[in-house]
Amino acid sequence: MANIQNPASQAQQPGQGAFAAIKARIFHPATRQKLLAFASLLTLMVFFSFASSNFLEIDNLVSILQSTAVNGVLAIACTFVIITAGIDLSVGTLMTFCAVMAGVFLTYMGLPIYIGIAAAIFFGALCGWVSGVLVAKLKIPPFIATLGMMMLLKGLSLVISGTKPIYFNDTPGFSAISQDSLIGNLIPALPIPNAVLILFLVAIAAGVILNKTIFGRYTFALGSNEEALRLSGVNVDFWKVAIYTFSGAICGIAGLLIASRLNSAQPALGQGYELDAIAAVVIGGTSLSGGTGTILGTIIGAFIMSVLINGLRMMSVAQEWQTVVTGVIIILAVYMDILRRRRQ
């Protein structure tokens, strides 16, 4: 009897194993967090569509996509740093500084557009490198190091620009980086701005780097157990500086997007963007304690923040109350992260 039943039970094992693998993946904490975040995004959209008849209009949806592009790119930059159990409070002012430097090269010096694009990314990487050195080599806590960089870059942006906006009216094609629609030219029914296309290209590239390269593996390892990584012979300081440098370069892309959207570099802009970016990262499931996080979750979190802010504006909620709601969302997101860590 045992010999007759055994083949049948063995035949069922592959199916059972596949089902168990799918079940384990669905109920994995990281997957549950992304599903919860996506459900929250859909709930917000349904709520605001009933609260305001104009919410689902094409122009408003395009506006949400535009604002998500900038915040989403900044959030991607923050994701790498937060996975290492660090924090970067300078991403907002770094974005502005990169926009100002693009203005210096394009408007003040009259150089070709590709030089301005390269300059924005270069200065973003350079400032990220400085932050990385402060954290990795000088052992300054990330909160303090990046807080200092935030104030430093805010001042530099004002000094270099003379406290006045730098306009790109004499740089043909610069506004097309963010405002034109390559997809809309091919499919007129989908006027999706180029900024959104750039966001998803950056997200795909960042996802591949985070999950498929040694750079990504060391990013997770730094957040999981930095000392164990050091004892295994890895140059921890080098990789930490590299991660902050990479994050800074992504902030340079965000600087180009917002400058192109406004067709100007606004030196007083930027402070406060870091809060929305960090909130998007935490809502998307990246732990402030480090070691876990996904780019997909971060993008969902960025859309949640954009939909929330846009919906509150459509409901004519005062700016100060929008700030209150944002603060509450950040506190709740961090508390949920603490609860997740306790369960694990």
Rank of each mutant, 00 (worst) to 15 (best):
L288V: 13
L56N: 04
F143Q: 04
L156F: 05
T292R: 12
V282Y: 14
R230W: 10
A228H: 06
V73L: 13
A277E: 05
V234S: 10
D59S: 11
S260G: 13
D88M: 12
A189H: 10
G255S: 13
A69L: 06
G155Q: 06
P191I: 02
M336P: 00
L269P: 00
A145N: 01
N235C: 05
E274L: 04
A221Q: 08
F27N: 04
A30F: 03
V241W: 02
G233T: 12
P14K: 09
G148Q: 03
F97Q: 05
S178F: 03
L190Q: 04
G128F: 09
C251E: 10
R340S: 06
S260N: 04
D170I: 00
A333L: 06
I177N: 07
I177E: 09
A125P: 11
A120E: 06
L199S: 06
V317D: 08
A99N: 10
S90V: 11
V81T: 08
A11I: 04
V62E: 12
N194I: 01
P14E: 08
W239A: 07
P267A: 01
S178Y: 08
L74E: 10
D170H: 11
I243H: 11
L153I: 00
G103V: 01
I250W: 12
N235Y: 02
S224I: 00
N3C: 06
I330L: 15
V202H: 12
M150F: 02
R25P: 00
L262S: 01
T107V: 03
R313W: 10
I144Y: 03
G116V: 02
R25L: 03
T171W: 07
F50T: 07
G233S: 07
A18M: 13
A206Q: 04
G233A: 07
L201Q: 04
I76L: 14
I204F: 08
A18C: 04
P188Y: 14
Q33C: 02
L197Q: 05
T326M: 15
G327I: 13
V324Y: 10
R342T: 06
A333N: 07
Q179G: 04
Q16R: 13
S161L: 10
R25S: 08
I187E: 03
V130T: 12
I283C: 14
F105S: 02
I309K: 15
L312E: 12
S178K: 12
C127S: 15
L190R: 08
S264N: 02
G124K: 14
D88K: 12
F174Q: 02
Q322M: 11
V81H: 09
S224A: 14
Q12G: 08
S260F: 01
Q179P: 00
M101Q: 06
